[in-house]
Computed example of a mutant assay.
Amino acid sequence: MTTNTTAYTATPLQKNYLVGGVRLFCILLWILCMPVVFVVSRILRIPGHMRLIPLFHAGLCRILGIETVVSGELCAARPTLYVSNHSSYLDVFVLGFLPAYFIAKSEVAGWPVLGRLAKLQHTLFVERRAGKAKHQLHTMQAHLAEGNSLTLFAEGTSTDGAHVEPFKSSLFAAANLGESERRVAIQPITVAYTHYNGERIVEQRVRDHYAWYARMPFAPHFMGLMPLKKVGAKIHLHPVCYLDEFETRKLCADHCQQQVADKLDELIQTD
């Protein structure tokens, strides 16, 4: 995840600090216990231990008061490149049900706690520098060629959650496996934070409590979530497309971006 430089101001919301304290305790307990259970299960080769990863994300959503609603049909093909808009680190939790490895910028690997958690769930770290583009593309293609699906935040940055930036077409080239018999499905996904405490979010200053972008410091933003009421997150799974259906990868990226952007507008404007 990367950030842009737009300023922000979050509007004050009614807070329940007792709830916040309980929530913080539960999160700390969850992120301490679940990784241990996962590592032990993996070492002992307990069947189905990989199902602990979506369970971990679902648990975090529940603790944080994120109520998710999923629409559309999840692509069952392997491998699939899931391409989503991106407005917050919370996106990782709400998309944790996807049967795929996340792609994150290399800096995330060094983040306290989140970096370690990302490594445990086999996140694929890539360097966004121009000189590393060929290497990161080969890494992604190798994962896809092995039948592993990937989740890509295709904007290459996080936004305010009310619009979608152009998708970076360069990483779409990973869906071209050359002579491989595998054909990579591409499924666009829209993530929208739409309701707070049952009411549609109208003001951007309210959405800023959940969107993490610009120069927002992580710790105050994350801690600010603790005493808040429930937020509604809607996830829409768009129809699958394939890279070879388009003349260029840019046209494919633009097609996916337009679908995601149109649906985001619809979701945030619907009561």
Rank of each mutant, 00 (worst) to 15 (best):
Y213W: 05
M223V: 11
K230C: 06
V231M: 04
H209A: 03
R215M: 13
P217V: 14
H221N: 13
Y210Q: 05
A211L: 04
I201P: 02
P220C: 00
E199P: 01
R183P: 02
H195C: 10
V191P: 12
A211C: 06
H195S: 11
R183Y: 02
G224Q: 00
M216Y: 00
L225R: 07
K230M: 06
P217R: 08
M223L: 14
W212N: 04
Y193H: 03
F218I: 08
R205H: 10
M223F: 10
G224P: 01
L228M: 11
Y210K: 07
E199T: 03
L228D: 06
H195F: 02
M226Q: 09
R200V: 15
M216Q: 13
P220H: 01
A219S: 07
T190Q: 01
A214D: 10
R183V: 14
P227H: 03
H209F: 05
H236W: 11
Y213D: 02
R200G: 15
A185T: 09
A211N: 06
Q187K: 14
G224Y: 00
Y213E: 04
P220G: 02
R207T: 07
T194C: 15
L228C: 12
V184K: 10
M216N: 04
R182S: 06
H195V: 10
V206T: 15
A211G: 04
K230E: 14
D208I: 07
Y213S: 01
Y213Q: 00
H221L: 06
F222D: 09
K229G: 15
P227I: 00
R205F: 02
L225P: 10
H195N: 12
R205Y: 01
V191R: 15
A233G: 07
F222G: 11
M226T: 08
V184Q: 10
V231L: 07
M226W: 07
E203Y: 03
N197M: 01
H209R: 12
K230N: 11
L225G: 08
P220M: 00
K229T: 12
F222T: 08
H221D: 06
G224W: 00
M216L: 02
L228N: 03
R207P: 08
P220V: 01
P220S: 02
R200L: 15
H195Q: 11
T190W: 01
A185Q: 06
I189V: 15
Y193R: 00
I235H: 08
F222W: 02
V191T: 13
V202D: 12
Y196E: 15
A211Y: 05
V202F: 09
L228A: 08
T190G: 02
H236I: 08
R183K: 09
V184L: 05
R215V: 11
T194R: 11
I235A: 11
T190R: 01
M226Y: 04
K230S: 13
D208E: 09
P217L: 07
M226P: 07
T194Q: 08
M226A: 09
H195L: 05
F218C: 10
I189W: 04
I235E: 08
R207I: 05
G232W: 04
Y210R: 05
F218E: 10
G198K: 07
G224C: 03
H236A: 12
R200M: 14
A219P: 05
T190S: 04
I189M: 09
Y196D: 13
V191S: 13
